[in-house]
Design a binder for these strands. Sequence first.
DNA 1: TCGCCCATTTCTGTATACAGAAACTAATTT
DNA 2: AAATTAGTTTCTGTATACAGAAATGGGCGA
Lengths: 224, 224
Amino acid sequence: MNSCTAPLPDRLREQIEEAIATGRLPPGTRLDEVGLAAQHGVSRTPLREALIQLAAAGYIERRSGKGWEVARVSAPRLCEMFEVMAELEGMAGRLAARRADEADHQSLLAAHQACQAARDAGVIEDFYRRNEAFHHALYAAAHNGFLAEQAAGLHRRLRPFRRLQIKMRNRMQTSHGEHGRILEALRDGDGAAAEALLRAHITIQGDRFTDLMALMDRLIPPGQ
Amino acid sequence: MNSCTAPLPDRLREQIEEAIATGRLPPGTRLDEVGLAAQHGVSRTPLREALIQLAAAGYIERRSGKGWEVARVSAPRLCEMFEVMAELEGMAGRLAARRADEADHQSLLAAHQACQAARDAGVIEDFYRRNEAFHHALYAAAHNGFLAEQAAGLHRRLRPFRRLQIKMRNRMQTSHGEHGRILEALRDGDGAAAEALLRAHITIQGDRFTDLMALMDRLIPPGQ
DNA sequence: TCGCCCATTTCTGTATACAGAAACTAATTT
DNA sequence: AAATTAGTTTCTGTATACAGAAATGGGCGA
């Protein structure tokens, strides 16, 4: 069990983050230090470190003296986060259009084709992972390491919601089509087009907004 | 001494962050847990919590098993961070231009006039603080809480470098002038103009880039 | 004189102990 | 019967203890 060499707190953080992302720990869940520690077979010290890091990333919140709870992401808050995500993606596209080298274009194309394969196979989970890889390739192509970190972090934090989104009917189809047009713009070195396409690709609007709001109810527990 | 009611780790974090920002703990400084704990009169536990939070925010880095050290911000890295900062500021401006209400405009004007007073008095430290307040007013006017948090965090992290910048000759003058033009664009509801002005206001280019690079040498210790 | 190896020491990572605060329960009073 | 309060219990925040790893320094050998 302890064969993994990664630091203990990091592993705990990943496990808890995964539990939050998959909904096993829904928003508002109270996190008990002793309970979680016992559950993971460690003492409170490394577990606390994991919780502190999760709180710093915004996954959980600490109510002073009252313990930790999984962050409740309100609908307006979620819109705000997607709005920032759209901006970062657009920025990455704009920069990638003029900075991407041949290797970057290759990575993007490979990721795009992997998405296509998953779409054709109809395996949502595969498409979901490869879609993430596509966006990471984009961040790399922008050649701004700090932007890549920030964008990847926010992308990761929005994971559970995107997961819901992508299950919507035809979302795989339309998403893949948008990726294709983005690739074209990048190939043409058209930064403005890439930026606009990526903003639109991320932005929640119209039906997709309503869909997401409807789906959010499934994530938020009845209490409060 | 212990009259403050803020949680102990938060106070430690602020103090250490301040020490890093002011250069009392220059990049590359090794941070010793027992030493810092003794120095602050606390045990290692709350101090470790502060260090974990600082690491999460990027102020310090942990080399597994080898302790902590103040993050070395390379010149390219710094450019990347300013590039993202420029994007966030531009975004805030674009949003503020169409979302700001009368109270927001009042806050911005008040902050602007406070800057003007500090500029006329020639007190750099005052101008520095009020400049920060101006930008915070801008974030608030954008009416995106998440953006405000992200922008404020990055702004804070770039503090030491902006501090150096602002000491440059005439920087107070030009900065204040730019603020004035930004206010006009916001008043006119001209989002594109506000975005462009704020991008340019933040972006490091030309002489300012060279200035900053020259000044960075004063921050980076001789070692390595 | 330079390099290598071993012992010592320091420091990190983790576990545990303890005090104080918060939450919960139950009993008593209005 | 409902509300309030006292007692109990649980949990957080902090301190301390301990083991293992890394860094340091001295001594020995080439």
